[in-house]
């Protein structure tokens, strides 16, 4: 019982949107397809839903879905803006697919689902009276109603404002786990992907660049662009990479991706070690948790670094930096 794509390609009037994608999604897991806009990720999702004609094989539990129309695939698709049926109440929207299947006990199931998404008692409201976040929850409940084999989420949270998005992402994860749903989510926001998914797949220019369990992808980005897209602050190459890796006590490599918090100002006045990095503060910005610095490091150029809030190095001040090797990722 798993989704498997092999050699999937989609063209729009001869312009390739998705090129030769292979992907596996085991049952019960949540996979986030991550990519910048225009990377073909939404097209891939629509191809899985049967809304775009695709070449290659899209199979569920070993069965090829090539000729199966959308409504017979048993995959529920949730849109960025919900696409609730405006003339039906919340309850009728959520119970829509259940009524199609003439399931008994629709009312109680609907109440249960609304409870699950935190909207108990909303059954008689019309979608027009709900806030954006509430509408997305209803859309989620509607998609979950028939316990779909696979839930497809197309940027489910990007229409919402930042605070709400963060909160709903956590809730979405809890709801998907509670329901034991296999889900394929498309997003351009890596934070959202980390919060909701077990696995990620990174797409760029229609191609799948990298996929796997989040921790593994995070620890070893396939290339510099992927590292930047996954949230690394900078990528160092060649000599600069060697120097930084040496400072961290790691073997040399062609490139290394650096998180903002990989370099920390060492406030101690211990004597200089050979591997130490020294530099001059170029700018400093105080945030509630830490001071964010840009430091001109000898032989490495500009790098991001952090200092604890208590210290406040000013621009022009010399600093000594220590490297946290768990916040580096070697790119091979």
């Amino acid at each position: 019982m798993s989704l498997s794509l092999s050699g999937v390609s989609v063209d729009y009037d001869g312009v390739p949107a998705v090129v030769d994608v292979d992907l596996e999604l085991p049952a019960g897991q949540v996979l986030a397809v991550l990519g910048p806009s225009g990377s073909g990720k939404s097209t891939l999702l629509r191809a899985v839903a049967g809304l775009e004609p695709a070449r290659g094989t899209i199979a569920w539990a070993g069965q090829d879905l090539g000729g199966v129309p959308t409504h017979q695939r048993g995959f529920a698709l949730m849109f960025q803006d919900g696409q609730l049926f405006g003339h039906l109440t919340v309850g009728r929207n959520v119970g829509y697919a259940l009524r199609l299947r003439k399931v008994r006990g629709v009312e109680s199931r609907v109440a249960e689902l609304l409870e699950l998404v935190g909207l108990a008692g909303y059954a008689d409201r019309l979608p027009g009276t709900l806030s954006g976040g509430e509408r997305q929850r209803v859309a989620l409940a509607r998609s979950l109603a028939v316990e779909p084999r696979l839930l497809l989420l197309d940027e489910p949270l990007s229409a919402l404002d930042a605070g709400l998005r963060e909160r709903l992402a956590g809730e979405l994860r809890d709801i998907l786990v509670a329901a034991g749903t296999t889900a394929l989510m498309v997003t351009h926001d890596h934070e959202e992907a980390y919060t909701v998914a077990d696995r990620i797949a990174v797409m760029r220019d229609g191609r799948l660049v990298q996929s796997g369990v989040i921790g593994k992808v995070w620890a070893a980005p396939a290339d510099p662009e992927t590292a930047l897209f996954l949230g690394y602050a900078r990528v160092l190459v060649d000599d600069a990479a060697q120097r930084l890796l040496a400072a961290a006590g790691l073997p040399p490599a062609a490139a290394v991706a650096v998180r903002r918090s990989a370099l920390t100002v060492d406030p101690s006045t211990a004597p200089d070690g050979a591997r130490d990095l020294r530099g001059v503060v170029l700018s400093a910005r105080v945030t509630p948790d830490q001071v964010r610095l840009v430091v001109g490091v000898d032989g490495l150029g500009e790098l991001d670094a952090v200092a604890s809030v208590g210290t406040h190095p000013a621009a022009g001040e010399p600093v000594r930096l220590v490297v946290d090797r768990s916040r580096l990722a070697v790119i091979r």
Partner: peptide
């Protein structure tokens, strides 16, 4: 996408027409 939403919830073409277009 309203029609696509209906289809992904299991509605056939006729049913989609009744749900989305007719109202």
């Amino acid at each position: 996408r309203q029609r696509q939403a209906a289809a992904s919830l299991g509605a056939g073409p006729l049913r989609t027409l009744l749900t989305v277009d007719v109202p």
